[in-house]
Design a protein around this nucleic acid. Sequence first.
RNA 1: GCCCGGAUGGUGAAAUUGGUAUACACGUAUGCCUUAGGAGCAUAUGCCGCAAGGUGUGCAGGUUCAAGUCCUGUUCCGGGCACCA
Length: 778
Amino acid sequence: MDRYEPLKIEEKWQKIWDEEKAFKAYEKPGVPKMYVAEMFPYPSGAGLHVGHVRNFTIVDVLTRFYRQQGLNVLRPFGYDTFGLPAENYAIKTGTAPQEVTKVNIDNFRKQAKRLGYAVDWDREINTSSPEYYKWTQWCFLQLYKKGLAYQKESYQWWCPEDQTVLANEQVENGKCWRCGHEVEKKKMKQWFFKITEYADELLADIDALDWPEKIKTMQKNWIGKSTGAEIDFEVEGGAPHITVFTTRPDTILGATFLVVAPEYAGLEALTNDNTREAVFAYKVKSIKKSEIERQENKEKTGVFTGSYAINPATKEKIPVYVADYVLAGYGTGAIMAVPAYDDRDREFAEKFDLPIVEAELIDRDAYGTPKTTYKMRDWLISRQRYWGCPIPIAYDKEGNPHPIPEDQLPVLIPEVEDYKPDNSGRSALAKAKDWLKVTIDGEEMTRETDTLDGYACSSWYLWRYTSPHDSEHAWDQEAIKYWAPTDIYVGADHAVAHLLYIRFWCKFFADLGYLPFREPVKKLIYHGYINAPDGKKMSKSKGNVIDPLDVINDGYGADTLRTYEMFIGPVELDAAWDPRSVGGVYRFLNRCYNLCMASDSNSGSRPAGPSPWAAGANSRAAALRNTPNPESEAIRHKTIKKVTEDIYHQNFNTAVAALMEYVNELYKVGASEEDLVVLAKLLMPFAPHLASEMLEKLGANDEWPKWDDKHLVSDTVEVVVQVNGKLRAKLSVNASELDDEEKIVEMALNDEKVKKYTENGIKKTIFVKRAKLVSIVV
RNA sequence: GCCCGGAUGGUGAAAUUGGUAUACACGUAUGCCUUAGGAGCAUAUGCCGCAAGGUGUGCAGGUUCAAGUCCUGUUCCGGGCACCA
């Protein structure tokens, strides 16, 4: 008889699945569909890590589970390939990012196939391929046409060392993530998507989503809706009035001064000859102030502008200050300070010796107009990077932007010698002199050299998967109607950014009539990270990285790796890798294999000698083939129910535990062929290669088994007896007697162990049929 | 500071509406077998105790016949946001 040799079995089945295109998805009108996807990976040079495996395996368990249930399942795979690592590598080595990307994708695909994923490999997408980014550019143009892609001059993080703009997430503790140089703010003209246009709907629709509460809360906080009012304050001396935003217009009688942000547009008009120099110096200093200083030192600073405003409620003259605790990007960039009601204003007032008035509250609408504001800002999408999707815009001689006509898409990324940004503040695209020139409507123009934030590329890929090779449309209307929205989306990152952007684009394209739904993802599974055995984050520098391919090649195989990662703990929690538990899962699969193969009556040469099991279970299992096994029937049905319900609820760890329990039981009572078929079917989502091998041996299909409730109840049941809440006895009772409360209570009271505690009389007895429990109070 | 989570054996963790706390796995111990393997199989394993029994889900209270689960307070840990007026 053969030993369990996972590497051999897995190679065999992977070849079969590949050749048969076993998981190719077609639209089947009338057949219920299921669309599951992971957040597609960035294919790094390091290959798959154990976190990818957890991510992909969750999707695979769901894919196979729903397939086995007869649903038409779409499970695609793709690569998010634009971004800095490939560009950095290009800058360092001179290798084109296109080449690096291709090598990394090939490696990722090869590795993913070694895990046996049930992917429709004909639907692969790659965001940096021209066939794909042509349509990213098309999406940009739709937003542009509707006025939702626009240019604005604003202050951005700038790294003076690398001469480039940085995104917020690329600034770590006030320093450039690449060179570690302190970043500063620089005013630049940049492209934005007007996500704020959808702020209200993005907020309102959160509640109905079947997403983890944690993510929903984070999105709500990110959008940060506040309702209040805008109030105009006239300024003495002819400067334009100042409009403030406040959530507490009822406190206006206590407003004893105004504060504007250093970047406030009308700041200069508020100054006079005496204050201008100090105000300007303060402004420059504030804008330069590093993020570190802002975080560490919240000491209030500010300067008097020289102007006074009139409080419209009190008619009093109040001073106008400039201070960096007021943020330019929120509200109007100006506030009315009410030190009696606001801690920050009080702190400022105390420092600058300004009056603090405990005034009474008034009607909220008395002096202002109701106004809603959001913390969420528009989405800055310009990147001065080479390795990104070119923004399909060109400028005329006056510098006015013009969209590239759709029939001229894609705007291809030009080939250059050096990918590094230069001192011009423009991306390396600017070095492609010929590429820069473009003629639109007979007019010579110059192309935009900024590229799009990578998040734009991933904002619509879930729809591209439904018709990945459509050369006429971003997505096909029939395909999108059948497959989308995504039923289950699985990831471990991007709680606000990506998961908010796809919602924004979904609503936008729904408004244009391109999507028949307004939320892209019905259910979100947000799983935890896998840490190193020492509980710390895995990292190359710490040398504690577990390579999933090593685990496979060590002989454990993909099935063990997959099953272990599902067994490691609750899906939403972080977990620490435990090499010894991997061995435990391997033992479990090995027991499954042996149980199945040992039951074959042709195999008389099982390796074990006269051990209690080998002699007993081997022959017993063989003898029980094709005969109902009343001993295993109850546990079989119980296991089907447990595994089915656990997978529905994403309790993968307890589903695996239930299978282990089942196998342990079969080792005790022997396994019928039916038991083994059910075991193989239930094992399929977790360990598909082994399960396929078992089913082949057993001559069965992989249709998901059903349980029958009538097999879940046994003839005799155990009733527990508590005295004063403490467990004192267990009664074995005929199941039919459970309805006879009187008899069961009598049995409980007559139990020898119980009698010891009831000598002094009984206050009352409680029988709970559902819990099979008698509670006696003495 | 604010908003979310979480705390159960030596370890990772289970536990429908409140109803036998610790399933499953690791580790450990003992034994069996041996084609000698870091394999397989069996039994035991919360803590104290020889036992009867007692005790036990971060801590302190409360509700209840009954609390890991509900309520009040508190400590610690993790995550998110952070001068958003």
